[in-house]
Design a protein around this nucleic acid. Structure first.
Lengths: 172, 172
DNA sequence: GAAAAACATTTTAGGCTTAAAACAATTTTG
DNA sequence: CAAAATTGTTTTAAGCCTAAAATGTTTTTC
């Protein structure tokens, strides 16, 4: 709630809130801090992936999705999971097929659908990278106690739900 | 610490840890959740900025930095604050100067340095956007209690410090 | 069953982003 | 003071990313 001194001009003749310029500075600061953390970690991971394996982060992320789906995924699935645009996935897949990491085929039952899978090479390379990647993440979060981790997980779950609700409010 | 059952093969003849494939699945899950939250909110803000003001998020972010610095900033300053590459800022500034939102001049005392400022137009437009932007953020975080916000701030501060330490360990 | 709607993907146009190399100016060092 | 190192910016080459329009396919609806 705004401080009294900030509310003087928001009282009209009927003593009801009119235009309430509420203070949301805390939420804004929280958002900036969240963004800073993510950018920091993402940049670090990106650099290490490039240096150690000469691979980009988006390529790694896409392979991570496919590693969890032995039977393959459609491009739409990947697009939703990665929260990126369809066109983005098209290009990413193109390059990964080209380099021999992915296999792409048209679905038997629905000729609109493209199913992609990791190739043997793709899976092997991903597993090798993922093992090291996990140690980087552990190191980046090293100063958090197990309790911190649990608490962050809980609060971020709540944040995600809140944001999804807000996003849904806008586009029904 | 790994569960006993996971440690059988890590004990050598001298009962000392050899290769300890420790379990960091929790940290990994935390990182993915952090990334999901940020991507979700960032996408939402990006879309609203475009729809309401026909402006991109990077442009908005750059203007936000300059709004806090009435005396202007150098490109390097901006690059560090925004945690993006130098070349990125060059292009961004070019377009914002072109559209009349920024003023760019070479420093009097050091001819390497470019100082940029918001123009009157740039400041006015930014303030107008920022006011609305703040309400979006408030809405996206609406389900968090003030206590949640405080707690998240604390844990993210700890996360940031941890990640910075880890990053510094790599490049001394 | 033909028209309309929905769906999956690709294409397009433009902007963002990075790492690395190049360039220019200043500061440090022998 | 001149050579070397550092600093601030731009350029380059390649890839990432988005929104919107276009294309081809399947499902729904009348």
């Amino acid at each position: 709630m705004p401080a009294v001194s900030d509310c003087i001009e928001m009282l009209d003749s009927e003593t009801k809130a009119v235009e309430t310029p509420e203070d949301h500075a805390e939420e804004l600061r929280l958002w900036l801090r969240l963004l800073t953390c993510t950018t920091l970690i993402e940049g670090e991971v990106r650099g290490r992936l490039r240096q150690r394996f000469d691979v980009t982060l988006p390529r790694f992320d896409l392979m991570a999705q496919l590693d969890k789906a032995p039977d393959g995924m459609t491009l739409s699935d990947v697009s939703k999971r990665m929260m990126v645009s369809n066109g983005n996935v098209t290009g990413l897949v193109e390059r990964l097929v080209e380099s021999g990491h992915l296999d792409r085929r048209t679905s038997e039952t629905d000729r609109r659908v493209q199913v992609i899978r990791l190739t043997k090479l793709g899976r092997a390379e991903f597993r090798r990278m993922a093992a090291e990647h996990e140690t980087w993440i552990a190191d980046l979060f090293a100063d958090l106690t197990p309790k911190d981790v649990r608490e962050l997980m809980r609060l971020l779950a709540k944040t995600k739900a809140s944001a999804q609700k807000s996003a849904a409010r806008r586009k029904p």
